[in-house]
């Protein structure tokens, strides 16, 4: 097993009497991109602030590359790049000045600053903006500067809190590519509301709710785990029982208007369905594979809570 770069154990965090994070434990290995999901107020940002050393944990411990964030904060922070929810920018500085300052703060020697700056600007698409004032940049470019700030010292662990907020679709795609490229050599924790983003960029998903970890799986297994379901539309009226009788069909339900949802057994293909549809002339004109998406899972898991409360 590869070395764990982030190790969170039994982490709890209280704000006065309100418990924002409750006994959270997880580890993150090198080269892994972890998606952090949760409804608003679930404790995502709090967790990230604790990992980055901006908030002290009430209980539990956080280790970054083996260094405890409380006992050896300097060593731990040296291995960490952090983009908070609000990028910590100086609006009155130019991009070059700001990034140069960040580089120096992260112990990059003066002669190496220029190369680090050029590299990170190329990575984040900021080549043309070096002399512009950060305050005059658009939200998307400010966000890029924020990401550049987090990776300028080449940290093995990068924490990004909602990095794609306020970006346009093209920028979002670019940032996702950037995150994926980061993930090839580093560990990345990414929090977001956008579920498709997690499916597109992350190796692993964690859903937290009310400060507790309720789901933790790789995105690959997420795609495999669920049954294959198809939405079909038929011209001819067909009995539900007839559909259920087809080989490999586990379950069928009526959607109305000649449409049905068929749920197949694991790894099954709708061959038998197509064959019988042709044979019995059902007039099959739509066959749409439905994958149970992260969104369904997310809603399912978070609505459990609503139900539990009621």
């Amino acid at each position: 097993m590869p070395e764990a770069l982030i190790q969170v154990e039994n982490l709890s965090r209280y704000y006065q009497n309100h418990r924002a994070v409750n006994r959270l434990s997880f580890t993150l290995c090198a080269g892994e991109v972890l998606g952090f999901l949760g409804p608003n107020g679930a404790g995502k940002s709090t967790t990230m602030q604790v990992i980055s050393g901006n908030l002290a944990p009430s209980e539990g411990e956080v280790k970054i590359a083996g260094h405890d964030i409380i006992d050896a904060p300097r060593e731990a922070k040296r291995h960490l790049g952090y983009l908070p929810e609000h990028p910590p920018l100086y609006r009155d500085a130019s991009v070059d000045e700001y990034l140069g300052y960040c580089a120096r703060l992260h112990c990059i020697a003066r002669p190496a600053v220029a190369t680090a700056l050029a590299k990170v600007k190329a990575q984040c698409g900021l080549e043309a903006s070096g002399r512009r004032l950060i305050g005059n940049l658009s939200k998307g470019y400010q966000q890029r500067v924020g990401i550049a700030q987090a990776i300028i010292h080449d940290p093995p662990v990068v924490i990004l809190d909602e990095p794609t907020v306020g970006l346009d679709p093209i920028q979002i795609r670019e940032i996702r590519e950037l995150i994926r490229s980061l993930g090839s050599e580093r560990s990345v924790i990414l929090s977001t509301h956008i579920l498709s983003e997690v499916q597109a960029t992350c190796d692993r998903v964690q859903i937290i709710r009310a400060g507790e970890l309720i789901y933790n799986a790789s995105t690959e297994s997420l795609n495999q785990r669920h049954e294959v379901s198809f939405k079909i539309a038929l011209r001819k009226a067909v009995d539900l029982a007839e559909l259920s009788a087809i080989a490999d069909v586990d379950h069928a339900e009526v959607l109305g208007d000649g449409r049905f949802r068929l749920i197949f057994a694991q790894d099954a293909t709708p061959d038998a369905l197509v064959a019988s549809a042709a044979q019995l002339q059902w007039g099959l004109y739509e066959l749409i594979p439905e994958q149970q998406s992260l969104e369904d899972l997310f809603i399912e898991l978070t609505q459990d809570e609503e139900a539990g409360k009621a």
């Binding site: 050393g53 300097r74 922070k77 910590p88 920018l89």
Partner: peptide
């Protein structure tokens, strides 16, 4: 107010 103190706190500084 600008929440830029995070930059200094996240850097390896006391």
């Amino acid at each position: 107010r600008n929440r830029s103190l995070t930059l200094l706190i996240s850097a390896p500084l006391g």
